[in-house]
Nucleic acid binder design. Structure first.
Length: 653
RNA sequence: GCGCCCGUAGCUCAGUUGGAUAGAGCAACGGACUUCUAAUCCGUAGGUCAUAGGUUCGAAUCCUAUCGGGCGUGCCA
């Protein structure tokens, strides 16, 4: 039973006879912020006071008088201006926790209204190896997939990989002109990725060389503007000062881009080899795009190369996914929709949504500054077109009720336009949701750059995490009071669980909306609010079972009912009963961090219990069994909860 | 220029949709291992919630302005 929901329901039925929007007021019943105010609190009496024309405390008293909750709670108390505080009866907790301890689903009821949900996440670009920037979408998306599935929804994960865009043209161009055949045969993916970076770099070089004079001119303009403003702005001219400041910051950003451009050019020019290549390929930028266009147009040679490259690229991605224990129901990349794109544009045209502008087919949306381009001047389709085709497919073939896009917040504008266009196009029943997340920043507070070169690849990141974890696992094992108990194989296995768990958890426990700073040490720290803390709590529970010499199965089937005599026992039972609440909140907002918070609190509450209440050595048999049951339920909730985040546990650490 | 997001303890972050005395984790300080794993627990200290106004019973949360940062902004995805 979801106690919060139950209480809200009871309050709702009282409110319904008094006000129209009972839902809104019932929702004001929330968990208490502070234990001294009980377990739950209702805050609705104050706002109702106006509507009902009574002092809030009187409103609260009226509500309490009509509320039928004596089976769940002690007599509610009115506090402060009109808060109603609820304290759940311990014998009710007892009866509930007994049920949950027997329950396969740990007290979590499957949703009443099952939805068909497609989750679009991870979606790496096959041309570039996966790096730390891909982590968030992958980890958050997979957690949502697991949570929504567990709640009983019909969920399909779809990896919408980038296998058909401009970046593939670069690979094709690179392969044609620069391939090192021996390297390609040895490690195709590494070589292709080198080729991609090379072509990209040379293209950028030429573009930069072309743009640099313009940039420098802009720089001198900006310098002039600042000088002029400095000369004319009066001391007390607030507006002028503000403008001056703006000009200065413009100047700084232009200066930075000039510096960056010069650096880029210098890097190529100082490298004789690179310079030679650059001179030999002056049109590389457009030529690479032509390769893309040829591929799209069905050029047999490019198609053949594509067919050859793709499996290797996919396999490289799958290596990482296997390590992360992630798999997809579908992997329908951009290329899958390629045959459908022309018809998308035709439909948009025939419905009068798309029109030609400057040689491109565009959908113009009111309130949007830029057009939504569905076909470029050169005839190529864009990701906008692909995304529209994908929506059509997911609604018509997959019968999706909801589509979630777990994608970087920087693409927010794109999704705004995509969703608006889709609705106008006729897909207005499906719920389209951009589950956006913030940028991963470096320690300097600046975003990771995709092509900076010194970015850690995802594979290396995982290796590093596991090797650090191994050090800690070994040190901890060596320090055990009764001597080490793990052999090398076990240590290695646990290090993997701890290392990967640490990485996933570091990402999931942030509010996904905010940017966060990527920090090796924090991510792999083995104490505090980390996956390790919960994994450790789980392992300690398993240690209790070993010590007590009982099987978990036996504990679960015992008919000893759970007793909550000690504060720590009551607190733990109450916490365990709120698993349902945490999952519901997490699913409602598509925010795994609600679940990580819950699990951290659960492990914390358990650790306190562990400290205060002996289990295996408890002499009173009923108490001992009761506590074993509490432990067993805690273990299952930690295990299940972590598993919904894609994090594993070990019985020994 | 326009649009979106952000500013909370020394650091990294929460804050359940407007609720009571703003919370965690690191780092600091002080306690707790002959007893189920001290990867732990208990306690202390640390705050003008960027700033200034406003809305109301009540604001970190909503509105306005200012300051500071990030991102995006017609053919990359």
């Amino acid at each position: 039973m979801n106690i919060l929901q139950e209480l809200r329901g009871r309050l709702h039925s009282v409110l319904a006879s008094k006000v129209e929007d009972a839902d809104r007021f019932a929702a004001m019943l929330t968990p208490s912020q502070n234990p001294e105010f009980g377990d739950y609190q209702a805050n609705c009496a104050m706002p109702l006071s106006k509507q009902l024309g009574k002092p809030p405390r009187d409103v609260a008293a009226d509500l309490i008088a009509e509320l039928d909750i004596s089976d769940l709670c002690e007599q509610p108390e009115i506090a402060g201006p009109g808060f109603i505080n609820f304290r759940v009866k311990t014998n009710f907790l007892q009866q509930q926790i007994d049920q949950v301890s027997q329950s396969e689903r740990l007290g979590v009821e499957p949703v009443a209204e099952k939805q068909r949900i497609v989750i679009d996440y991870s979606a790496p670009n096959v041309a570039k190896p996966m790096h730390v920037g891909h982590l968030r979408s992958t980890v958050i998306g997979n957690a949502l997939y697991r949570i929504l599935s567990f709640l009983g929804h019909d969920v399909t994960s779809d990896n919408h990989i980038g296998d058909w865009g401009t970046q593939f043209g670069m690979i094709l161009y690179g392969y044609r002109n620069f391939v090192d055949q021996a390297a390609y045969e040895k490690d195709a993916v590494a070589e292709l990725s080198r080729l991609y970076r090379l072509v990209n770099r040379l293209g950028e070089y030429h573009q930069t060389v072309e743009e640099l004079p313009g940039l420098e001119w802009k720089l001198s303009e900006a310098e002039q503007a600042v000088n002029d403003a400095e000369a004319t702005v009066e001391q007390d001219d607030k507006r002028g000062k503000k403008q001056l400041k703006k000009l200065r910051s413009d100047l700084e950003s232009i200066r930075a881009s000039v510096k960056k451009a010069e650096g880029l050019v210098a890097e190529v020019e100082q490298d004789a080899e690179l310079k030679k290549l650059a001179d030999a390929h002056p049109e590389i930028h457009t030529d690479a795009r032509k390769e893309t266009a040829k591929l799209h147009a069905g050029d047999p040679e490019n198609r053949q190369l594509w067919d050859e490259f793709l499996p290797a690229c996919l396999e490289a991605m799958n290596v990482v996914y296997r390590r992360l224990d992630i798999n997809f129901d579908l992997t329908l990349g951009e290329s899958y929709y390629q045959p459908q794109l022309a018809s998308v544009v035709e439909e948009l045209k025939s419905k009068g949504l798309a029109e030609e502008s400057q040689g491109a087919m565009c959908v113009f949306l009111p309130e949007e500054r830029a057009p939504f381009i569905v076909q470029k001047q050169d005839g190529a389709f864009t990701y906008a077109t692909t995304d529209l085709a994908t929506i059509r497919y997911r609604v018509e073939e997959l019968k999706a009720d909801t589509i979630l896009y777990v994608v970087d917040a920087r693409q927010g504008d794109h999704f705004q336009m995509l969703f608006k266009t889709a609705r106008k196009w006729g897909y207005d029943d499906v719920a389209l949701q951009h589950v956006s997340f913030g940028t991963v920043m470096g320690k300097d507070g600046k975003p990771f750059k995709t092509r900076a070169g010194d970015i850690v690849g995802l594979g290396d990141l995982l290796d590093e995490a596991i090797s650090r974890a191994l050090g800690i696992v070994a040190a901890n094992d060596d320090a055990k009071p009764n001597g080490a108990e793990l052999d090398d194989a076990a240590r290695a296995r646990i290090a993997e669980i701890v290392g990967l768990g640490g990485i996933k958890y570091a990402d999931l426990h942030h509010n996904r909306e905010s940017d966060y700073i990527f920090d090796w040490d924090k991510m792999l720290a083995m104490n505090g609010d980390t996956a390790t803390y919960m994994q450790y709590a789980y392992a300690r529970i398993c240690g209790i079972f070993r010590k007590a010499g009982v099987e978990r199965e036996t504990i679960r089937n015992s008919d000893q009912s759970i007793q909550l005599g000690h504060d720590a026992e009551r607190a733990l039972a109450f916490q365990l009963l709120r698993f349902d609440e945490a999952l519901a909140a997490s699913a409602q907002e598509y925010r795994p961090n609600f679940l990580t918070n819950y699990l951290f609190e659960t492990a914390n509450t358990f650790s306190t219990f562990y400290d205060k209440c002996p289990v295996a050595s408890e002499e009173d048999e009923a108490t001992r069994l009761s506590r074993l049951k509490l432990c067993e339920t805690t273990a299952r909730i930690l295990e299940q909860g972590l598993s919904l985040l894609g994090i594993k546990t070990s019985e020994r650490m």
